[in-house]
Design a protein around this nucleic acid. Structure first.
Length: 861
RNA sequence: GCCGGAAUGGCGGAACCGGUAGACGCAGCGGACUCAAAAUCCGCCGGUGGCGACACCAUGAGAGUUCGAGUCUCUCUUCCGGCACCA
């Protein structure tokens, strides 16, 4: 073995070994426990960034650990290859998106390989390949025939100069990113997937996902947004026509306290009333302009204007004025609310603003006779008052009674309202899955029949930014109707790329399958046992995938009982780095941290920083690695300088996987130092003899060392189980430090071998290359991946004597060594003999003695 | 505004059930080796007092429960994340 650690050589050899052994290739094996470990697949943007390295290292640690524990582990990799950046790059470089994408895939694949991930590349897929997106199309046509996919109009951002639809991220301050033209809203026909049909199930099943972070489940719950209430009708007459204004409320119990109605600016009543009222029309227009997205709108002033119309209260017959209110949203419920100022914060503010009456109908804890004017609304549930027949009823009974009475009059019923909307999947873009529909003048929208799938996207196109290039290709657009054969037009919209990523996990189970979307191999591998990725996908990607899993079950008949695609979810934290800038005449010029030298005071705090060529820079603190702050660290440079094992060890050891990870060049150097120490320890180790440890031949010091090694191992295995990988890595440091202190003599030899064998196996999921090399080179075995995961020896953890801490009144005063079997009385007596303990106890009455076996003694005086 | 989560040395972080706070690493300081530097190795490393044994203080702030609280309960502060004026 060489004296010097050369990571490049070691890693190349290990990777060649795995390649030649097909070490990561897996198949179905019903006899073994399967484990499907999946990291979110990357978008092939060019090259890997640190977030990828972190994500895939976490997945690889889990994969290799489960393998060594005997599971049949699948860890695949693929490419989320459709999407807008490819079109942007195409315009900038005049390269077809397909070529740009495939080139990026080649680069990133070689980077992933250089990191030594245990990936089964035989299952690689790219969503832009017709073999893959054919099944997007197939599933779409199935859902279309069932009515779970349908067409309706949707609103898009329209750039009037480029004559093209813009994605939200292409709209910058209301203007098109390329043209700077004011963006218009346009209504165009789009296809939707009826995810709302699954709303109830998607919500309820969250409670059956104990392996998901609570935070993610809560975000999904809020997104689905179920509220139970009552739909209530208020009758009115307009131009002698009887009509009903419908509202939705979760507080039907306060119906008797309604003193006005408020409708959204877009509501038909507002629109028709504004026709003969220019002032109202101006107000309606103003409301429509107001942005309705930002959270700070929660505090904007309530504004409104009366329409001059009145509706009839369905139970009291009272006439209530109808107002247009800027706080009522057309997109939720009925676009109208009943105003109950006494018991709703917004209604209260509105009523105050316009001197509308406030009528309390729920008993206030301070008493029924709260004198007007009210100081604030009272929004808690309570008992009805001032409500005629409903007086004295608590919330639920009042809602039931009122709903029943409304139903009898045909003016209301209980209703469940959802926030979740159907999923609009049409994108007016070129680089995506073609929507398999043909528009025929005679037959309407005809789904492309199975035998004509896939509808192949031409790959030689270079978009120019004006409209969808597919529209300009007659050979693509003109096609006979699959139904009647007459000339027809092919749909040119493509699918949202979230469709691609909503089922790739199942497809990984079924490589090289060209007859069906999935096959029975999905039954073996699904569900994904461990899914790893960023929290930014907490809502959309994960919700859509849960929806698709259910749709796939129904359409393929496979994966019965597997309703949820991801059993356990780990959301890894972001990677942060220091950022620095120079002040270039009021403008910040960001300097990459690799170009900065830092000066610290005696405490290690940064006092000043300058560039390597001496210009002073300002330290801006830790932030997400980003292009805009120029603080990214290139994984490639890191691997070339230190090797993949160092990068992997740093990323794992520095922070728990769910925390943010603060980049530190010194930290990386520390990880490298550990790799080098490990290496030189191995270089001086000699060949393993394989003689086991004979515990009775160990002296006290060696016994203590062995205890430490096994105690650290026990803790490391516990930490591994709860995915706290940072302390598993540092357990490697601890065991190494123990081994490094051991004498190099015959008495210690067997323990040295046992300890090193444990250390190498424990570290192998984190730093697979160096451990692979040392394992083989030192004669521990052929292939460390095939070795058993180390378990602590219970005998090594037995101790004849234990150290107990002695406390007086809960404060640490000394420690004693007692035989393991010592009884309470003996421990008490020994504790009292301790000199320092005596100082605090003497002359006082010992009132109580607490003995925690194996831990401590507490004397209460 | 509402809903989550977090707060421990100069820094990242550790501390399983309430039981020795600060493991491991980074930075820093001192030393060895060297003509010198790098690399490597050894020692110190929360604060205050003390020659020392040791004592006191200390896990964002304040209370509480307990023999004993970083850990449990309540109130507050700050930071991070999510969102929907959702009727």
């Amino acid at each position: 073995m060489k004296e010097a650690y050369e990571p490049q050589t070691v890693e190349r050899e290990a990777q060649q070994f795995w390649e030649s052994q097909r070490s990561f290739h897996v198949g179905e094996d019903p006899a073994r426990q399967k484990f499907y470990c999946l990291s979110m697949f990357p978008y092939p943007s060019g090259k890997l960034h640190m977030g990828h390295v972190r994500n895939y290292t976490i997945g690889d640690v889990l994969t290799r650990h489960h393998r060594m524990r005997g599971a049949n582990v699948l860890q695949p990799m693929g490419w989320d290859a459709f999407g807008l950046p490819a079109e942007n790059a195409a315009m900038a470089n005049r390269v077809p998106p397909a070529k740009w994408t495939y080139d990026n895939i080649a680069t990133m694949k070689s980077q992933l390989k250089s990191l030594g991930f245990a990936l089964d590349w035989a299952r690689e897929l790219a969503t832009c390949s017709p073999d893959y997106y054919k099944w997007n199309q197939w599933l779409f046509t199935r859902l279309f025939k069932k009515g779970l996919a349908y067409k309706k109009t949707g609103v898009v951002n329209w750039d009037p100069v480029d004559q093209t639809v813009l994605a939200n991220e292409q709209v910058i301050e209301g203007r098109g990113w390329r043209t700077g033209a004011l963006v218009e809203k346009r209504e165009i026909p789009m296809y939707f997937l009826r995810i709302t049909a699954y709303a109830e199930e998607l919500l309820a099943a969250l409670d059956r996902l104990p392996g998901w972070p609570e935070q993610v489940k809560l975000m999904q719950k809020n997104w689905i947004g179920k509220s139970e209430g009552v739909r209530i009708g208020f009758e009115y007459e307009m131009q002698d026509q009887k009509s009903v204004l419908w509202v939705f409320t979760t507080r039907a119990d306060t119906l008797m306290g309604a003193t006005f109605m408020a409708v959204a600016a877009e509501h038909p009543i507002a629109v028709s009333a504004s026709r003969k009222n220019p002032e109202l029309q101006a107000f309606v227009e103003e409301c429509k302009k107001g942005a309705v997205m930002e959270a700070d709108l929660a505090q904007i002033e309530k504004k409104g204007m009366p329409t001059g119309m009145f509706v009839t209260h369905p139970l009291s017959g009272e006439k209530l004025p109808v107002w247009v209110g800027n706080y009522v949203l057309m997109g939720y419920g009925e676009g109208a609310v009943m105003g109950v100022p006494a018991h709703d914060e917004r209604d209260y503010a509105f009523a105050l603003q316009y001197q509308l009456p406030i009528k309390p109908v729920i008993r206030h804890p301070l008493g029924d006779t709260v004198p007007p004017p009210w100081k604030s609304e009272y929004a808690e549930h309570g008992v009805c008052i001032n409500s005629g027949p409903y007086d004295g009823l608590p919330f639920e009974k009042a809602v039931d009674a009122i709903a029943a009475d409304l139903k009898a009059k045909g003016l209301g019923e209980k209703q469940v309202q959802w926030r979740l909307r159907d999923w609009g999947i049409s994108r007016q873009r070129y680089w995506g899955t073609p929507i398999p529909i043909v528009h025929c003048a005679a037959c309407g929208d005809v789904p492309v029949p199975d035998e004509q799938l896939p509808v192949v996207l031409p790959e030689d196109v270079v978009p120019d930014g004006t409209g969808n290039p597919l529209n300009k290709r007659a050979s693509y657009v003109d096609t006979p109707c699959p139904s009647c054969g007459k000339p027809a037009r092919r749909e040119t919209d493509t699918m949202d790329t979230f469709v691609d990523s909503s089922w790739y996990f199942a497809r990984f189970a079924c490589p090289a399958q060209d007859k069906t979307m999935l096959d029975e191999r999905a039954n073996y591998w699904m569900p994904v046992d461990q899914y790893i990725g960023g929290i930014e996908h907490a809502i959309l990607h994960l919700l859509y995938s849960r929806f698709f899993q259910r749709a796939m079950q129904e359409e393929t008949g496979l994966m019965r009982g597997v309703d949820e695609p991801f059993t356990n979810l780990l959301t890894q934290g972001m990677v942060l780095a220091e950022s620095y800038y120079t002040d270039a005449g009021g403008r910040r010029e960001w300097v990459n941290p690799s170009q900065v030298e830092v000066e610290r005071d005696a405490d290690g705090k940064i006092v000043s920083a300058k560039t390597k060529d001496g210009r002073p820079v300002i330290h801006d603190g830790m932030g997400t690695m980003s292009k805009s702050k120029n603080n990214g660290v290139d994984p490639q440079e890191l691997i070339e300088k230190y090797g993949a094992d160092t990068a992997r060890f740093f990323v794992i050891a520095t922070a728990p996987p769910t925390n943010t990870l603060e980049w530190s060049d010194n930290g990386v150097a520390g990880a490298y130092r550990f790799m080098k120490r490990l290496w030189s320890f191995g270089a001086g180790f000699g060949r393993a003899q394989g003689a086991g440890v004979n515990p009775s031949s160990l002296d006290a010091a060696l016994k203590a060392a062995r205890f430490q090694i096994h105690a650290v191992l026990r803790q490391a295995n516990y930490d591994m189980g709860k995915h706290q990988f940072n302390t598993v890595a540092t357990a490697g440091n601890k065991i190494f430090n123990v081994l490094d202190e051991l004498p190099r003599d015959d008495a210690a030899r067997a323990l040295l071998e046992e300890g090193f064998s444990i250390l190498l196996r424990l570290l192998s999921p984190i730093t697979p290359h160096v451990t692979h090399h040392l394992w083989r080179e030192l004669g521990f075995g052929e292939d460390i991946m095939k070795a058993a995961w180390p378990e602590p020896d219970p005998k090594a953890l037995e101790q004849d004597e234990v150290e107990l801490v002695v406390q007086v009144n809960g404060k640490l005063r000394g420690s004693i060594r007692v035989p393991k079997a010592a009884d309470r009385a003996a421990i008490e007596e020994l504790a009292l003999t301790n000199a320092n303990v005596q100082r605090f106890v003497s002359g006082q009455q010992v009132k109580k003695v607490v003995v925690v076996p194996g831990r401590l003694v507490n004397l209460v005086v």
